[in-house]
């Protein structure tokens, strides 16, 4: 990983080391806002922005930050980006801002952001850190989008708030309740394991 730009860094976040399906960090917002596709997309975009931004900044300042104060510095950087996102969404997309509610400010304590800052950006060059942030963010967004699509379609009969299964559809309500999120995430993780290992491993 000594290359200036390594595109594998970007790709691994999307599938192999996907933040939701592999690293399994930052699941709280995934569980909370994935009951509707629109909110999930808003959350995804917010995470991409914060993750890329904080990775960029933290990688740039890694030389001047002494290791014993790095955690508070990371938190300040992340909190700054989150607050910027918060204000911007409130100003330009009040609907999504309202639906994301408390989970938007909570991105500050989302482990995936701090995890990438500590685990990647603080050890790698700026370009790769940006790529890592983008890759992880997009990986996060894709999966939260898939989860939200499944949950909204089955649990509410709608996609992006438009009815697609018709009025006679009796929604499978548990899908938009918290247990539904656990079920779908669990099934997707199992599916990923199955695809990668081909079911060869036994208990």
């Amino acid at each position: 990983m000594k290359k200036l730009i390594d595109f594998k860094v970007f790709l691994k976040g999307i599938w192999k080391e996907n933040p939701i399906l592999f690293i399994m960090l930052g699941l709280c917002p995934v569980l909370a806002v994935s009951s509707s596709v629109k909110d999930a997309l808003g959350m995804g975009i917010a995470v991409i922005f914060v993750l890329t931004g904080s990775n960029f900044v933290i990688s740039s300042i890694k030389k001047i930050v002494p290791s014993y104060v790095r955690i508070p510095v990371y938190i300040v950087v992340i909190a700054t980006f989150v607050t910027i996102t918060d204000y911007t969404l409130a100003a330009f997309s009040p609907q999504i801002h309202r639906n994301l509610g408390v989970y938007l400010p909570l991105i500050v304590v989302n482990c995936i952001i701090l995890g990438r800052a500590e685990g990647f950006a603080s050890k790698n060059n700026i370009l790769n850190s940006i790529l890592d942030g983008l890759g992880m963010g997009i990986g996060f967004s894709l999966i939260i989008f898939v989860i939200a699509s499944i949950r909204e379609i089955i649990g509410n009969g709608t996609f992006l708030s438009r009815s697609i299964l018709g009025v006679s559809y009796n929604p499978f309500l548990i899908m938009i309740m918290p247990p539904g999120a656990f079920l779908v995430i669990g099934l997707l993780i199992a599916l990923k394991q199955r695809i990668e290992k081909g079911g060869k491993e036994k208990c």
Partner: peptide
């Protein structure tokens, strides 16, 4: 339990 939550 799942059915009860889904089709109350």
């Amino acid at each position: 339990a799942i059915l009860l939550a889904s089709y109350p």
